[in-house]
Amino acid sequence: MSKIITSFVLIFFLQSVIAQNDQGVITYERKMYWINVSSKLPWMTQAEIDRDKLTWGKRQGRWSETYDLSFTPTASLYKEKESEESMGYSRRDGNFLMLRDYKAKTVRDNLTLVDRDYLVEGDIPAFKWKILNEIREIQGFLCMKALTSDPVKDVPVYAWFTDQIPVPGGPEGYGGLPGMILALEIGPDGVFIEATKVDLESTAVISFPKKAKGKKVDVTEYQEKVKENIAKAIANKRNPFWYVRY
């Protein structure tokens, strides 16, 4: 009898430990620190960098965009959520939708690069993650720091992932860690993305719109196109990151 009670207690205890942390919707806030980005461009003189820092330095990070990541143990969908605070003015910079299928290990993205729409389909790109030793709490979850390199811009990217949400997903198409990425630092000081709300109760709805339009390319082709655009802009002494996502 005591054994039955113990096993019930054990199962009950385990249920609470093995919480349903594997599906839901995470809301992220994305901020771009544009002076940090522009000061790394090759043609900027120290005078121009100083002047920008002096004039704009403290205003960076005041504006942010909101994104939603809906996820289940087998898939995730990342898209922009139009801010209700835009005060009645709507502005779209093109399409932005990222779908990840963890079972089939494929991606399906609808992205706009400068002025063209693309439908990117192919295998999930493999990230080379270096696991570091820092831990931090984000939205009540304990996260660990990892480092990789952005495949297109070749800059360091730090990710804070939590194994308390055991899904290998994250914002901006990053993933492949033993837990959900709740924060990203790209540049590492150019773009900061952090989870502002983690909702594990709502049912995640993951569906790719049928009428998504764009030229079909695979992941490598798309990354090449982005690299080309960045290189062309830099050769023309224009800051590519005003219209190419950093």
Binding site: K130, I131, P178
Partner: peptide, 20 residues
């Protein structure tokens, strides 16, 4: 410790595999 995350890294701490 149940569902602890165990990671397999190379010498430079690059993640190769993980399990629970």
């Amino acid at each position: 410790l149940v569902r602890a995350t165990v990671m397999l890294l190379d010498q430079d701490s690059v993640l190769l595999d993980y399990t629970q």
